[in-house]
């Protein structure tokens, strides 16, 4: 397969950056998208050029490191997968592929396609945890009975890998789906109740502080999320937030 890649190159967060054309040939349909970029980088290195910087780690769809806006969609045209699971067979010989970083003021570009998503970490640190005594009196989590439906919903919310595709897809660069998933996974469990009020207030406050946009319920996040995190989580977070605010 012969392709024309248009890749965003940017030296550092302060420089301007632009799209640069890279024709590439000999790409197999069975290669993953990241393997295709590996091929390109090997060629660039052989020519003594600067390789394209992009994020990746597990390459099996579980870590949330890989990102990339591919032809205008986060993680590319396929649904319910991350960029590392996207295969080149989804493209045709002769295609032009535009590759850009996830864009949001809260996700500044570090270099080329790599962005700083530590704003997500700070939202998580603001309340995405439960406090458990681990000094030898730890209660077995399974000692507390939990309804099957609640456990399933909580688990579904907990599958969020923090990739940021929801922000990248959203026309408002809103982080509501991510934050809602992290609030919901605890809000649905008895273990999460003790800190429930502070959790939602603090996480939403941090989300706003980071400069993410406001949700207008377009639903783009849910469609592009590689883990299928549902908009119901956002409604749940809104409820939790309103109830927590009413309590003070």
């Amino acid at each position: 397969m012969n392709l024309l890649l248009k890749i965003w190159r940017q030296n550092n967060s302060a420089s301007r950056g632009s799209l640069v054309d890279y024709p590439i040939s000999g790409i197999e349909g069975d290669m993953s998208f990241l393997e295709m970029l590996d091929v390109l980088n090997e060629q660039l290195i052989a020519k003594g050029e600067d390789p394209v910087v992009f994020d990746h780690d597990c390459r099996e769809g579980i870590c949330g490191s890989c990102s990339l806006m591919i032809n205008g969609e986060p993680h590319g045209p396929d649904r319910l997968i991350t960029t590392c699971q996207l295969h080149m067979r989804k493209f045709k010989d002769g295609d032009t592929i535009v590759i850009e970083p996830f864009r949001a003021s809260a996700f500044p570009v570090i270099k080329d396609l790599m962005v700083d998503r530590s704003s997500f970490d700070r939202i998580q640190q603001a309340g995405g945890y439960i406090s458990v005594n681990t000094s030898g009196h730890t209660v077995d989590a399974n000692a507390i009975p939990i309804e099957k439906e609640k456990a399933d919903e909580s688990f579904a919310a907990a599958t969020c890998i923090g990739c940021g595709a929801c922000v990248a897809a959203c026309k408002n660069a809103s982080a509501m789906l991510f934050t809602a998933a992290k609030v919901s996974q605890f809000a649905l469990l008895p273990q999460g109740q003790i800190e429930a009020t502070d959790r939602v207030l603090n996480m939403v406050k941090q989300m706003d502080l980071e400069g993410f946009g406001n949700c207008t319920n377009t639903g783009a996040c849910e469609v592009e999320c590689p883990k299928g995190i549902s908009l119901e989580n956002i409604a749940r977070m809104n409820r939790e937030y309103l109830m927590a605010s009413a309590k003070g």
């Binding site: 248009k6 965003w8 799209l19 806006m69 032809n71 205008g72 969609e73 045209p77 535009v98 850009e100 864009r103 949001a104 003021s105 809260a106 897809a169 026309k171 408002n172 660069a173 809103s174 400069g211 993410f212 946009g213 406001n214 207008t216 319920n217 377009t218 639903g219 783009a220 469609v223 592009e224």
Partner: peptide, 25 residues
């Protein structure tokens, strides 16, 4: 205005129609 500020650098290619209806955008 806040939402525009949340994405100061626009995408060169953005397929909004792939994931959200026109009316909502």
């Amino acid at each position: 205005f806040q939402n525009r500020k949340a994405r100061p650098v626009r995408y060169n290619q953005y397929r909004g129609s792939a994931n959200a209806p026109w009316v909502s955008r």
